[in-house]
Write a protein that binds this DNA or RNA. Structure first.
Lengths: 211, 211
DNA sequence: ACAAAAGTGTTGCTTTTACACCCATGC
DNA sequence: GCATGGGTGTAAAAGCAACACTTTTGT
């Protein structure tokens, strides 16, 4: 019987912060060696017969200390196979994204980093984040599960602008983003308007998913 | 110590046949139970510390019986994690694509199927093929490694038309495909022309990759 | 000459990007 | 009022799809 490479699941846990108007990535200091104390993506070893999604949920609850029901959606990103990525020995890492519902978060060891300014992380996690960033940007407005998971069931144009800027790096014109959103299946502009920002400005439309 | 899920690598081995004007998928009858005798994608268990690419190479040589130097390129597709996908027990399957150089192929147990008419396969391999087909179609003319691997260092407009039709399902206008190809970085139309087909027609241009 | 297939040029449509201008709010 | 910021309309630009017509071959 040939020994097989252990598989870990590393999670890019994303959360949209409507107050800070930013997309945040959840990391936590490692509890054990190697890299004890250093920030890392939440990750766990995949159990026998465990589904990737379930392992991702476990990583979020065990490593970030967040409740499982804060997870709004999950999906695959890519697989990393460099044998030297873990000093303990070769492991495969399947990177998954997880979106979190900001209303259900609890306090925990989580360090929330702006997606644009992720601090140095343990293992090859810097590389994982760097490689996966464009994949994430690509999912916004294209992958409905990702988009709805990140922004929630209801959000304003202002939120959409902020999230897009955080993921892609530049801020679209509100008019154009509105037209993009109208072409997203299942998403509709409601007749409601949210409260305007403290600094004033026209109150943005509220968008909602069907059903 | 928690037992971890074994990882297998399943390969979509693609070959462009300039004579048959088709893209072919390599499958082979399984040598052992389960599904002995039934056609399946070439797959191997990932060894400890083995890279995915190397495992894919092993699958192609061991299961399809092709020489390793027939492999022109490789890349990742997706990971399949349904615990019941293998009756022997839960395994993870990482699907990779491999392109083959038709000039270096040898005879072997390989059954070459038209990509559009893949016969029923063992395990969940039908599903893997179905899920990965759009991903492959997306790579043509976008992923230079895939495109160059499939079509080789030098090919004609006629080949490009055939490969595009095989992957996407419909045949582009030669004029429009030519303009698409001129925008592919590293690809250039040469001044050469290949021989015309037996039925006549204008001889197509030869295209070549830089350097 | 005729048929077949690639290439050229052109046209119309869709998508993207950009911006001027209008509207609704906080101050 | 003024500043702020979203929304409407429009227009230029880029990309894409379709097709008429030409070119170059085989028969």
């Amino acid at each position: 019987m040939i020994e097989s490479t252990p598989v870990s699941v590393d999670v890019l846990a994303l959360r949209f912060d409507p107050v800070g108007r930013a997309v945040l990535l959840g990391t936590a200091p490692r509890a054990a060696e190697p890299f004890a104390g250093e920030l890392a993506l939440p990750g766990v070893l995949l159990g026998l017969g465990e589904r990737l999604r379930d392992a991702a949920r476990r990583a979020v609850t065990d490593k970030l200390g967040l409740p499982a029901d804060a997870i709004s959606a999950t999906g695959q990103l890519a697989t990393f196979d460099e044998p030297s990525r873990d000093p303990r020995g070769p492991t495969l890492s399947v990177a998954l994204w997880v979106t979190l519902d900001p209303t259900r978060l609890t306090d925990g060891p989580t360090h929330w980093a702006f997606l644009a300014e992720v601090p140095p992380l343990a293992f090859d996690h810097d590389r994982i984040v760097a490689d996966c960033r464009p994949l994430l940007a690509d999912k916004l407005w294209r992958d409905p599960a990702f988009t709805a998971g990140l922004l929630g069931p209801e959000f304003t144009t202002a939120h959409a602008l902020d999230a897009t800027e955080a993921l892609t790096g530049d801020r679209p014109y509100p008019a154009n983003l509105g037209r993009t959103m109208e072409r997203v299946p299942g998403l509709r502009r409601t007749t409601q308007h949210a409260a305007a920002l403290p600094r004033g400005g026209r109150p943005p439309s509220v968008w909602r998913w069907d059903s």
